[in-house]
């Protein structure tokens, strides 16, 4: 059975840790990091990467344009 998997890359330094992406992810993939970036913000990262489908909900809503989404189909 074909599987669609996704992944994201977060521009950590651009992220302000607003967590809107975390709340918008339909599969609870994301959470905020326990570390902070250079400007003192915790940043979004994948907590459950295997659940990501690459739907881009997080990136679409991100106010700071810091999420890039990739998706691949595995036969």
């Amino acid at each position: 059975m074909a599987k669609i998997k996704g992944t994201i890359i977060v521009d950590k330094e651009r992220c302000k840790g607003c967590a809107v992406c975390v709340a918008s992810c339909p599969f609870q993939v994301l959470h905020l990091s326990s570390q902070v970036n250079g400007r003192g913000y915790p940043f979004a990262e994948m907590e459950h990467p295997d659940q990501c489908t690459g739907c881009a909900s997080c990136a679409v809503i991100c106010p700071d344009s810091c999420i890039t989404v990739y998706r691949q189909k595995f036969e």
């Binding site: 881009a56 990136a59 809503i61 810091c66 890039t68 989404v69």
Partner: peptide, 25 residues
Amino acid sequence: NLVYGTPKLITDRIMHYCPGCSHGT
């Protein structure tokens, strides 16, 4: 494999808006 990236017209400058502000979106 890219499905969503930052639009080219958005500059590299980090926005001064507060975290989560609708303006950015």
